[in-house]
């Protein structure tokens, strides 16, 4: 009986901690959603007779969508994250395949360098890359947003672990059938590792959609800005406290795609990270 009680209290305590953590994470979002549903006055304190909530929503989201270049920002963000993801998958799968399945001199050193690159913070390489881009005259272009992220040490590592457990005999069979190595990668290995690629894609998309640091360095004109930077432009341009509602509406719209994707792909995501092997 006592044991059972202990078990229950422990479960309750664990859940309390988890709920607290979840609340801490969710609170800024809840605040953001609430603010995007309110008129300017309401956000900072009680107003005697607030306008109806539908009016506030129409006002905030209307201004967010039609008076700011939000859709343009989101298109920029889509091009940037999409471009980065495609480039990353193409470069890292091939690289991981070579590291996992070929035996060549220097393979271990190369792999160690890949792992080492994970320890280098983006800030350390930002300045040299910026200078190069400035010299080449590529600043303020889509390409400049993508350049530092065209490949990924993390992806190489993740895919390497996956490909290593891929049966060698299938590769031998493919070679015997007459496939070229590049076809083996794209026709045999890649389809088998789609879950792993999906898991990495979520990491990559989240990171780059939310990234502010690099776009702030590489991008100057509002036309090219991805959503995060765009919001910053919007805030400094709009100034005053009265546009807080539309700003929060913008933020809600910018974060919405990621939240939806995470909700839908949650299970796949866990699968992809925990999975190794073909079956």
């Amino acid at each position: 009986m006592a044991l059972r009680l202990l078990h229950h209290t422990r479960t309750a305590a664990v859940h309390a901690v988890l709920i607290l953590g979840a609340g801490l994470m969710a609170y800024p979002f809840i605040w953001m959603w609430r603010a995007s549903f309110q008129s300017a006055g309401e956000i900072f304190g009680a107003v005697a007779n607030p306008p109806p909530i539908w009016d506030s929503i129409a006002e905030n989201y209307g201004r967010a969508l039609f008076e700011t270049p939000l859709l343009r920002f989101m298109l920029n963000g889509l091009i940037m994250t999409g471009g980065i993801l495609i480039a990353q998958v193409l470069t890292t799968v091939i690289c991981a395949f070579a590291l996992a399945k070929y035996d060549f001199r220097g393979r271990k050193i190369l792999f160690a360098l890949v792992l080492l690159s994970l320890a280098v913070p983006a800030q350390a390489t930002a300045l040299p890359i910026f200078i190069v881009l400035a010299k080449v005259g590529l600043l303020d272009t889509y390409l400049s947003m993508m350049v530092p992220y065209l490949t990924s040490g993390f992806a190489i590592f993740l895919f390497h672990q996956f490909i290593k457990s891929f049966p060698d005999e299938i590769l031998l069979a493919a070679r015997l059938d007459g496939m070229t190595e590049i076809e083996i990668v794209f026709r045999i290995v890649m389809p088998a590792m789609l879950p792993a690629i999906a898991a990495f894609a979520i990491f990559s998309i989240t990171f780059h959609w939310n990234d502010l640091y690099w776009p702030m360095i590489a991008i100057r004109s509002a036309d090219m800005a991805p959503p995060t930077l765009g919001l910053l432009f919007f805030r400094s341009q709009g100034g005053g406290g009265d546009s807080f509602g539309p700003l929060m509406a913008c933020a809600t719209l910018v974060t919405a795609p990621l939240i939806l994707v995470s909700l839908v792909a949650q299970r796949k995501f866990v699968q992809g990270v925990t999975m190794t092997g073909v079956k």
Binding site: P167, E169, I170, L172, A173, A174, I188, P191, A192
Partner: peptide, 9 residues
């Protein structure tokens, strides 16, 4: 092959 080595997908 012993493991059949069929293309899984």
């Amino acid at each position: 092959f012993q493991s059949y080595a069929l293309y899984p997908h």
